[in-house]
Design a protein around this nucleic acid. Structure first.
Ligand SMILES: [Mn+2]
Ligand SMILES: [Mn+2]
Ligand SMILES: [Zn+2]
Ligand SMILES: [Zn+2]
Lengths: 141, 141
DNA sequence: TATCAAATTTCTAATCATTACAATTTTATA
DNA sequence: TATAAAATTGTAATGATTAGAAATTTGATA
């Protein structure tokens, strides 16, 4: 079954000129909701686009982030992770299996406190860490 | 005026054996609430302890974090920042001047959602990004 | 269609925060 | 004091990300 995601229009809507590489990367993010790293995206596309450069992956992800087409998550201190879902939600990282899960969340109350301080808020990130249900049942220590 | 913070007892309370270096680092964090990086802490202490090694700073901060004596903030994708204040609060990073500010916050509601998913939560981080009141008034673009 | 400039991609090397590892020093204990 | 364990240090390695220049592609225009 073919994806109903229109990558081309998605990029245009965020003032990003489409290209083969950009379309492949945004499609990858649409299809892989695991919050992949730049390296994982590169590895996932190199067979499909053998000329792809890792620099292009980084440049493109930074461009997408600038244009607010994706989120850049710093829940991991080693790698930045990327997310096509820019809606209001939190993330949970398992300290055992390293997976990053989505968690429903509403963050309006905190934002309003920041506004009272005179801050202009452009990004909100709520990161939870601990142990996921799988790892909690059978810890790998 | 001398600080009323008992660094020695603070470390003992977190099952950390005190040493000259460890006391200096925890005192630095007590006195500098700017969420400094490991490098800033090293630079701030090298005159006081000329033999101090940057490796020791990293080792010590990791130990403090393991023992839950401090927070390790990944609000910045370049450097980890450290905070002696382990109470429930959020952080705001200015994208212009790069300062990291404290913001009051209560995150219980989100944690409860995570618990419903079977997650065991050990850390909560709420990061806001945007422009602080100083930079907002006179943007440096 | 040929030409040219701008935009994009690519390659390579650099950067730089953090860690690995082995050697040295300090501390605790017998 | 002798010895082992713990902590600190110095150096080199690691690895994600970026810088910068060269190559390729795109798009407009003649
Ligand atoms: Mn997500
Ligand atoms: Mn803080
Ligand atoms: Zn897990
Ligand atoms: Zn600012």
């Amino acid at each position: 079954m073919k994806s109903d995601f229109n990558a081309y229009n998605y990029l245009l809507q965020h003032d990003i000129k489409p290209s083969v590489q950009r379309l492949a990367i945004i499609n990858y993010l649409y299809e892989h909701r695991t919050h992949p790293t730049a390296d994982e995206i590169y590895a996932g596309l190199i067979d499909q686009i053998p000329t792809l450069s890792k620099t292009t992956v980084y440049n493109t992800l930074n461009l997408f982030h600038q244009q607010a087409a994706i989120l850049a998550l710093t829940i991991d201190d080693k790698n930045v992770r990327f997310d096509i879902d820019t809606s209001d939600h939190a993330h949970f990282k398992c300290l055992n299996c390293a997976k990053v899960f989505d968690v429903p969340a509403v963050l309006d109350s905190v934002t309003s406190v920041a506004l009272e301080h005179g801050f202009v808020v452009t990004e909100k990130h709520l990161y939870l860490k601990g142990y996921c249900s799988s790892c909690n049942e059978s810890p790998n220590k």
